[in-house]
């Protein structure tokens, strides 16, 4: 086995998870100006629901489909019924509302699923693909391809298409966007829906490789948040920050030891935050 090849493979898989969760956070942040701390709950809800439904005898496909729908309903419902009526509230308070929603989901999931971790079978079965002294499971390939593919699709859509730019414009200046004929509300609910879908997809693809429990949500939010923050909340940048984080984590784990991962990684995060904010002053508030 080749340690370097395997580190790259592991880094790709881990990076796909970072990106998958990061892009949903970026999307919502850029369209609705909310840091959605309940984002990772879409991952946990999908995982727990799929595991329970499949465990209850539903065919895997149906269980996954239903689980994704539940997660979508949560993501859009959070926006429609909780956040939208309070759109004028300060950003900090809205962040805390999403944190509250995450706490509530955690409380519900522990009642539904107990404390033991759950999982469900992979979608892509078969022996791992081997190359250059490394091995990669089919599900892992799907995770990497879809993780980066879908995220790249979303990133390119936002950065390069007219509709995507309108979505972003909706957040930069909702009033101007309305004047230009952008339906801000539709843009936002779309963002939440896409975010929820991405979180759910991440769950469907990743959980068979690990497991899920009632408190996976916040941990996943944190992962996405790290990637999103390092990218400076950029829909294209998050692809690279996710990939970079994944490779970094794998390389540190392989050559340096996992104990040093967090101190190094988060010092980098602080430096990036400093760099990102070098030109912003006065709390990013509007200029005189």
């Amino acid at each position: 086995m080749n340690l370097f090849t395997q580190s790259v493979i592991s880094g790709l898989m881990t990076g796909a998870v970072y990106t998958f969760l990061g892009i949903g956070l970026v999307l919502v942040y850029r369209t609705a100006r909310i840091l959605n701390l309940a984002h990772g709950e879409t991952f946990a809800i999908t995982g727990v629901a799929a595991a329970l439904l499949a465990g209850a005898g539903l065919p895997l496909g149906a269980a996954l489909g239903l689980a994704i729908l539940i997660s979508l309903a949560f993501a859009t419902g959070l926006h429609r019924f909780v956040l939208r009526p309070r759109a004028e509230w300060p950003a900090g308070t809205l962040i805390l509302i999403t944190l509250g929603a995450a706490f509530v989901v955690r409380g519900v999931l522990i009642l539904l699923a107990g404390t033991d971790p759950l999982s469900f079978p992979v979608m892509f079965e078969g022996p791992p693909v081997r190359f250059a002294g490394g091995a990669m499971p089919l599900q892992g390939i799907a995770l990497v391809v879809l993780g980066f593919g879908v995220s790249a699709g979303v990133g390119i859509f936002l950065a390069a298409t007219r509709a995507g730019k309108q979505l972003l414009a909706a957040a930069e200046n909702p009033y101007a966007a309305e004047l230009l004929g952008v339906n801000v509300e539709r843009a936002r609910i779309t963002a939440y829906a896409i975010g929820g879908l991405l979180g759910a997809l991440a769950g469907v693809l990743l959980i068979p490789l690990i497991a899920v429990d009632f408190q996976s949500g916040l941990a996943m939010t944190l992962r996405g948040f790290i990637a999103a923050a390092i990218s400076g909340m950029s829909p294209v940048g998050v692809l690279f920050s996710g990939l970079g984080l994944g490779l970094f984590e794998a390389m540190v784990g392989a050559y340096l030891g996992a104990l040093y991962q967090d101190p190094v990684m988060f010092c980098v995060l602080i430096l990036v935050a400093l760099w990102q904010s070098r030109n912003i002053r006065f709390g990013g508030s509007r200029r005189a």
Binding site: M1, S10, T14, I210, E249, A250, A254, A258, L259
Partner: peptide, 21 residues
């Protein structure tokens, strides 16, 4: 020996390091 972070979603590098032929 290899340590694995509590958040890790993949352990293949750790295993590649400690589980040689």
């Amino acid at each position: 020996l290899a340590r694995i972070d509590l958040r890790a979603t993949d352990a293949s590098t750790q295993l590649a390091r400690v589980a040689g032929s």
